[in-house]
Each structure stands twice: as structure tokens, then as C-alpha cells.
Amino acid sequence: MEGQVREVDGVLPSVLAVRGSVLKAVVPYNNRTEGALVSGVEVYGAKSLREIVAFLSGEEELKPEKPLDISEILREKPDEELDFADVAGQAVAKRALEIAAAGNHNCLML
């Protein structure tokens, strides 16, 4: 390991939790777009611990991620098609969806 900052789950709720108490947040580089969904906090993506230390000490400048509008993300089409066969387990739920689709019905899953 050379101090790389890896992608993590839960950046959005973490940045939401600090909103109001901090103005800036440094998150893993691959999570910067997710963190930028939170308004009121400047989100910076860092690739390594060295980069974070240099940023905090004023030796290096990181560009803040531009705030995103959630509607932009929802409009984007996924790069690959989703396949029902990729769902592992959930046999009962899958069967219910198959029956609903076969009869052209709706299905609400809670």
C-alpha cells in the first residue's frame, strides 16, 4: 500500500451528516460525484493520503467537484443493460415479478 484512498460505500449519507457543521469535505476520488449531490458543502476528491495532507497544509490545490443536480443523474442511461438473470437469490420475489410481467400487471415491492 502506498496510501491510496479507495472508493467506499456511504459517502452520500456521510456528507449529509456533516452538512451544516463543515463547509468542505474530502472524499475518495471515485466518490466525489456522489458527495457533490449534497448542497452547502464543497466536496473534494482525493486519490491518496499524501494529496489530502498537501491540500490541508495548503501545499497543493484540489478543485472542488461541481455540485450536481439529481435530475442530471437520473437522465443518464446506464452503460450496460440490466439483466434479470443477474439477480442472485430472491426466488420468491423473482417469481412474483415474472407472474406480474406475464399477465401485464403491476407489482409493488416493499
Rank of each mutant, 00 (worst) to 15 (best):
Q4P: 01
V5T: 03
V5D: 00
R6Y: 10
R6M: 08
R6I: 10
E7N: 13
E7M: 13
E7V: 05
V8N: 02
D9G: 07
V11D: 00
L12T: 00
P13K: 01
P13R: 01
S14I: 01
L16F: 05
L16Y: 03
A17P: 01
V18L: 03
G20P: 00
S21E: 04
S21H: 04
V22N: 03
V22P: 06
V22F: 12
L23A: 15
L23G: 14
K24C: 08
K24H: 06
K24F: 09
A25C: 15
V26T: 08
V27C: 08
P28K: 10
Y29I: 08
R32E: 14
T33Q: 15
E34F: 11
E34W: 06
E34C: 12
G35N: 13
L37C: 11
L37R: 05
V38L: 09
V41Q: 10
Y44D: 04
G45F: 02
G45I: 01
G45H: 02
A46G: 00
E51C: 00
V53K: 05
V53N: 05
V53T: 06
A54H: 13
S57R: 08
G58E: 02
E59R: 14
E59T: 05
E60A: 09
E61H: 12
L62H: 02
K63H: 12
K63Q: 07
E65H: 13
D69Q: 05
D69L: 10
D69H: 01
I70S: 12
I70P: 00
S71G: 09
E72H: 14
E72M: 14
E72P: 12
I73H: 00
I73D: 05
I73E: 10
L74F: 09
R75N: 05
R75V: 01
E76M: 15
E76S: 09
E76W: 06
K77P: 01
D79N: 11
E80A: 08
E80D: 06
E81P: 09
L82Y: 07
D83S: 13
D83A: 10
D83I: 09
F84R: 07
A85Y: 09
D86P: 14
D86H: 15
V87T: 02
V87F: 02
G89L: 12
Q90W: 11
Q90G: 06
Q90Y: 10
V92F: 15
A93D: 08
A93Q: 09
A93H: 13
K94D: 07
R95C: 08
A96M: 11
E98Y: 10
E98I: 02
A100D: 07
A101M: 10
A102E: 06
G103T: 14
G103I: 12
G103K: 14
N104L: 07
H105F: 13
H105Q: 08
H105T: 00
L108M: 11
L108F: 12
M109K: 11
M109H: 07
M109R: 13
L110S: 05
L110I: 12
L110C: 01
